[in-house]
Design a protein around this nucleic acid. Structure first.
Length: 935
RNA sequence: GCGGAUGUGGCGUAAUUGGUAGCCGUGCCAGACUUAGGAUCUGGUGCCGAAAGGCGUGGGGGUUCGAGUCCCUUCAUCCGCACCA
């Protein structure tokens, strides 16, 4: 009766899912004598489309790890939740009139339903949803802690604003200059103030100054404003300067918004990468994003027509090339542009500024290589040799990076060189033969020439010499720059966390902790108000809730909820704190974090930032959230096409399509076997195709194929429910792992799933007889059987520890084949293997475990230990290679001395045949590996 | 352009980390059983060759007794960044 059939699988899986749920077996306690282990999945955004086979890939891997670690005696935290705020739900509400809260709740139910069928060992009692007020209360609370902090550069850590005020009262800001260099004390032209000054400032001035230091601060920043849609767009909704939806033009618009001062943490975010186990590419992407460059700020005197002197500060990473400066270039937006322009050049400059103004983001991006610019008529004086060089403006210099001004060194910088050639500026060669006259050479290896006191010095050595000289002369200093900008934290959206602040005048004050959460008000109007403010601005009574006070009409980005959710899992129901200190200390860092590489920058950086801030403020005893990160590859779709002859309802097979004028159409992959279309199913697929006719080749309709992302609109989505229906969750789990290395992207291909299914059935039959009864032997196992067992356990353990799940599945198959062929059904062999299999195929493992007579769930079993003693061979068959080619094989004891092996090999007839009696020049004996003769 | 990764049979992949390349699975070929089925079992299967043998890890070069693995170079594909001074 009980074969491992479709019906039996369904029965087993349903049975165990029910039992697991009833007995609450995955519930985890925050205290245990066992060591802790924290396995985390990136929690999903519950989209309406549901799961496809690509989604569970990482979840299956992390589930295997957590089940394995549990069997290994760890107290494992393995939670799941939902990143439930976000744009699609809001867009869906606008399009379909369904409130985001409603559609999100539905989608979450749907996700949980699908997830539950795959047999994950999540502790659902710890589920978090970022849109739940009891959760976002703490998102808001953490935001307020960040608002109440500043970065003490001297101590390289965040401190409370109260500490800063105490400092100001005592000594002003002389030791802690404004992080933003352009800010001046209100009402003055000064960058510093004294303790007495501070005491004389009014409340407004004080708050304005404090705002310059806060780690969460308000400032005027650009938003992507789309006039046609009447809304503000997120950066990823803007593709090449036009809106993702509709392709409408997008312009920059200044608005007063929240930002997080992540730039203060640039160095620590960079250094932290050395301590954590992320892939090289992931670390590189983050380093790249932070974009550290070390160089110098150099001050040049400007001589302009009026005669009044001004100073121009440039940033350069190559101060060693200072004698190669042939011109200066300012960003068109640079503040000096208008004041230094000569009367003669005024027209040119104004014309150029108008041109720049007229250029949209798209133009600028599309024509990066186009060289434009205008001369100001002013000159800059090289501080070292007094040389006068012209000052130009050009859009290739960005206002937002460095000082918005550069020194042009055409012989060493490609862009400067092109600029010089285009405008016929002279090129001073300071690198001798390294410069060929037609192309710049950015080398650091050249020996400097025409460079005054640097002559004869190699460039990379000269860099420090110049910086010292600059500092000595007081005309420059060492400077580190970062590409990373502060993180914009306001979204003009409804479906997110409201900012827990109250404005009095234009100053925001933190809400009292006791008033949190500031609940997102009910609304049915999700369109942004015309002014560019978010939808909350429509709710006048909520915004202006009290005389003289007003709320923020923006909400936080989804990154906010996701920046700390891994902490909430540790103590998810706490209403006194975001998590109890004891729980935070107990669980600590996430040991393994599994998720997609698309979150390389935003999510991972913000999480790292929040953890660092919470660490600095004393809430956490660790300052990196994730000890190890695994990026599962994407599973792509394998699309199929049919070719419709244009203007007809005839479809031509792929091999014959060249003879026709055709349009390719995506066809549902579920009605194609390999490349062959099920023509009847195709006719039934859509009414339009009911009357389809086919032009066949060899009696078959062959489809075209292409690898694309899995998407409903490509009809290449494979739903895990369908696989589970046909093969069961255990086969799905093992097959997804078997598909290839976890971190590699690969197309989904259902071919081959039979192999995994056959394995499970074979394994099942190891201990079932033909009638389906359990048939195990309690006899002592043979040495051969023990060897198979221990070898397998050893490899499986190694593979899981190294996240190499594809090879562990292979290992199970090999083991099963070997046991089948020696007809082994010994209990002492099978039982450990069932335990080892349980992380991969938990349902069938539980069933077998029970059938083997165990009352307790397999979850409380212990992962078997292997014994090297069974793996040791006493002899080894040595390949004998002669000049690199294996010519013979000989068996020797493993502990035989090298000399004896050498003697025996040389004396053997099989070897003599190849050596032709000559003595080899050299004999290499590697114990347990190979014997190599060099003739 | 810069940075990161990948490249092995018809296909997905493996290789004790420098030691017999191709494990496992699919696919294909042959056979067995059979109530002919997209079931099950057994054997074969990198390429050339009748065989002996030769050739083979994108291409070229190098180090080594020995290279898929290390070094140099080159090509192809994917991903990230992209006027960042």
């Amino acid at each position: 009766m009980a074969d491992y059939s479709k019906e039996e699988i369904k029965r087993i899986e349903e049975k165990w899912r029910t039992i697991w749920k009833e007995r609450d077996v995955y519930k985890v306690q925050n205290n245990s004598p066992k060591p802790k282990y924290y396995v985390l999945d990136m929690f999903p955004y519950p989209s309406g489309a549901g799961l496809h086979v690509g989604h569970p890939l990482g979840y299956i891997a992390s589930d295997i790890v957590s089940r394995y670690k549990r069997l290994k005696g760890f107290n494992v935290l393995h939670p799941m939740g939902f990143d439930a705020f976000g744009l699609p739900a809001e867009q869906y509400a606008i399009d379909h009139g369904i409130h985001p809260a409603v559609s999100t709740a539905q989608n979450i139910e749907n996700f949980k339903d699908q997830l539950s069928k795959i047999g994950f060992s999540y502790d659902w009692s710890r589920e978090v949803q970022t849109c739940d007020p009891s959760y976002y209360k703490w998102t808001q609370w953490i935001f307020l802690q960040i608002f109440d902090s500043w970065y003490n550069r001297r101590k390289e850590k965040a401190e409370r604003i109260a500490d800063l005020i105490a400092l100001f009262e005592k000594e002003g800001n002389t030791n802690h200059p404004f992080p933003n260099v352009k800010f001046l004390v209100p009402g003055t032209k000064k960058e510093t103030f004294s303790g007495d000054d501070w005491k004389s400032f009014d409340e407004h001035t004080r708050q304005e100054i404090l705002m310059q230091y806060r780690l969460a601060y308000l400032a005027y920043t650009d938003v992507n404003w789309c006039e046609a849609l009447g809304t503000v767009l997120a950066n990823d909704e803007v593709i090449n300067g036009v809106s993702y939806r509709g392709g409408f033009p997008v312009v920059k618009k200044q608005m007063r918004q929240w930002s997080l001062r992540i730039t203060e943490y640039a160095e620590r975010l960079l250094k932290g990468l050395d301590e954590i186990d992320f892939s090289d590419s992931m670390k590189e992407i983050q380093r790249n994003w932070i974009g550290k460059s070390v160089g110098a700020k150099v001050t040049f005197e400007i001589q302009s027509e009026g005669g009044q002197s001004s100073k121009l500060v440039v940033f350069t990473t190559r101060p060693d090339t200072i004698f190669g400066v042939d011109f200066m270039v300012l960003a068109p937006e640079h503040e000096l542009v208008r004041s230094i322009t000569s009367t003669e050049q005024k027209e040119d400059i104004e014309k150029y500024l108008r041109y720049v103004e007229s250029r949209s983001e798209i133009d600028r991006m599309a024509e990066v290589k186009k060289i434009t610019g205008a001369a100001t008529g002013a000159f800059a004086i090289n501080p070292f040799n007094g040389r006068k060089v012209p000052v130009w403006i050009s859009e290739y210099v960005l206002a937002g990076y460095g000082t918005g001004a550069i020194m042009g060194v055409p012989c060493g910088d490609e862009r400067d060189h092109k600029f010089a050639k285009h405008f016929n500026l002279p090129v001073t060669n300071i690198i001798g033969e390294y410069y060929n006259g037609s192309e710049a050479n950015p080398t650091k290896e050249a020996t400097l020439q025409n460079s005054d006191f640097l002559n004869g010095m190699v460039m990379h050595d000269a860099i420090d010499v110049v910086i010292s000289k600059l500092e000595e002369k007081g005309i420059g200093k060492r400077q580190v720059n970062y590409k990373m900008r502060d993180a914009g934290w306001s979204r003009q959206r409804y479906w997110g966390e409201p900012f827990p602040v109250v404005y009095r005048g234009d100053i925001p004050y933190a809400m009292d902790e006791k008033e949190l959460p500031l609940v997102l008000p009910e609304s049915n109007n999700f369109r942004s108000s015309g002014s560019g403010e978010g939808p909350l601005a429509n709710l006048k009574e909520w915004v202006f809730f009290k005389d003289g006070e007003r709320r923020d009409t923006n909400t936080m980005p989804t990154h906010a909820g996701a920046a700390w959710y891994f902490l909430r899992y540790m103590d998810p129901h706490n209403d006194k704190a975001f998590a109890e200190k004891k729980a935070l200390d107990y669980w600590g860092q996430v040991d393994v974090y599994v998720g997609g590489s698309e979150h390389a920058v935003a999510h991972l950086l913000y999480s790292r930032l929040w953890v660092k801030i919470l660490h600095d403020l004393g809430y956490l005893n660790f300052d990196e959230p994730f000890r190890k990160l695994i990026n599962q590859g994407k599973i792509t779709g394998d699309s199929r096409f049919v070719y419709r002859v244009r203007g007809t309802n005839k479809f031509v097979s792929a091999g014959l399509k060249d003879g026709y004028d055709t349009d390719p159409l995506h066809v549902d992959v579920n009605i194609v076997t390999g490349l062959e279309l099920d023509t009847q199913a195709f006719k039934n697929w859509k009414p339009d195709f009911a009357t389809a006719e086919f032009i066949l080749e060899d009696g078959k309709y062959i489809c075209g194929a292409s690898i694309e992302k899995m998407s409903k609109s490509y009809f290449n989505v494979v739903n895990p429910d369908v696989i589970i229906e046909n093969y069961g969750a255990d086969t799905l789990r093992m097959y997804e792992m078997f598909l290839g290395p976890l971190e590699l992207s690969k197309p989904w291909n259902t071919h081959g799933i039979d192999g995994v299914y056959k394995f499970l059935r074979k394994f099942w039959h190891l201990i079932h007889d033909h009638q389906g009864n359990i048939h195990v032997s309690d006899d002592e196992p043979s040495r051969e059987e023990l060897k198979v067992l221990h070898k397998t356990i050893k490899k499986i353990e190694y593979d899981i520890e190294h996240f190499s799940f594809n090879t562990s599945v292979s290992e199970f198959m090999i083991c099963c084949n070997e046991l089948s062929s020696i007809k082994c059904n010994k209990r002492s062999i099978i039982e450990p293997l069932v335990i080892a299999l349980s992380p991969f195929a938990p349902h069938v493992a539980e069933e077998l475990w029970e059938k083997l007579g165990h009352g307790e769930s397999i979850l409380s079993a212990t992962f078997p230990a292997y014994d090297e003693a069974y793996l040791k061979e006493d002899s080894f068959e040595y390949p004998i290679s002669i000049n690199g080619k294996v010519r013979a094989k000989m068996n020797f004891a493993l502990d035989m001395p090298k000399e004896d092996i050498e003697k025996l090999v040389l004396a053997s007839d099989a070897v003599a045949k190849w050596t032709e009696g000559k003595t080899p020049k050299k004999v290499i004996v590697v114990p347990g590996r190979i014997v190599n003769l060099v003739m």
